[in-house]
Design a protein around this nucleic acid. Sequence first.
DNA 1: TTGAAAATATTGAATATTCAACAATTGAAG
DNA 2: CTTCAATTGTTGAATATTCAATATTTTCAA
Lengths: 144, 144
Amino acid sequence: MAKPNAPITEHLAYLLAQANREINRQLELRLSKEGVPVEQWRTLKVLSDGYGHSMGELADAVLLNHPTLTKMIDRMVSDTLVYRVQDPNDRRKVLMFISDRGKVLCKKLNSLAVDQEEHILESYGDKSTSELKRLLESLIDSSN
Amino acid sequence: MAKPNAPITEHLAYLLAQANREINRQLELRLSKEGVPVEQWRTLKVLSDGYGHSMGELADAVLLNHPTLTKMIDRMVSDTLVYRVQDPNDRRKVLMFISDRGKVLCKKLNSLAVDQEEHILESYGDKSTSELKRLLESLIDSSN
DNA sequence: TTGAAAATATTGAATATTCAACAATTGAAG
DNA sequence: CTTCAATTGTTGAATATTCAATATTTTCAA
């Protein structure tokens, strides 16, 4: 039943890694126009709802481990893109907020990211794109 | 047409990153039984055809940048899993080979990886899996 | 044939990530 | 109430990755 000698290119884990690497590389390239790494864009985008988000929430949302996030947030605070506020309801928590400067930057980044999505839609097709998104969502669901 | 305010979870780049993170985490967990990172498994698997592969080829295949690969290979050489041979036809190149110890380890890793594929097939389904693989391959193709 | 450009791999310094340990706060059981 | 376990976030040391620069070999045009 199993295929222990299947080439690595047939493993789902590999195909995902390969596709992710390529798409991420393209996105990085666009965002580099503003000198911002992908994870910082994710952070700004999540915070741009204007509400405070705890570090834990944020770590999940931006796909980073806690210590990695803490240090990235340190840099973003230095760049005055975001700021920390201690949660008054639970003083273990830190709530992150986006600054005005962060909002301005986020808008620019969003449009760079949308450019990319449109480029994918063109070269890969409408139908394939939405079908792929659907399957990815369902894979993520089934993995929890 | 574009959706500049779409939540990040609707971006293909994000869904790919999320799915990849989750599947890769699961694979890591299994391979950790043998104390081997995913990239080393990929390397061993590629080299297990018994032929020599240059560093450049290998970097593409295992999805690592050249300097990162060089340093990982240094570790694998220390662990006597692989060895270097200068390419006689083009002395700029280094050909990598798998050792006997590497082959033994690779077999164990393959079966751990196959376990995972089977687990995915069960929870996610045969049909979805092969459709997802097909779409990922085609995305990768269309990105080059 | 020579010399400049391209291809290949490695190195070292700068940066980023991870792991384990820690500190602070909350929750909850006795 | 008090104490002990769980939750949340940060830190420091160890490890890994990246960027720019380098060394070597090959290619190719003049």
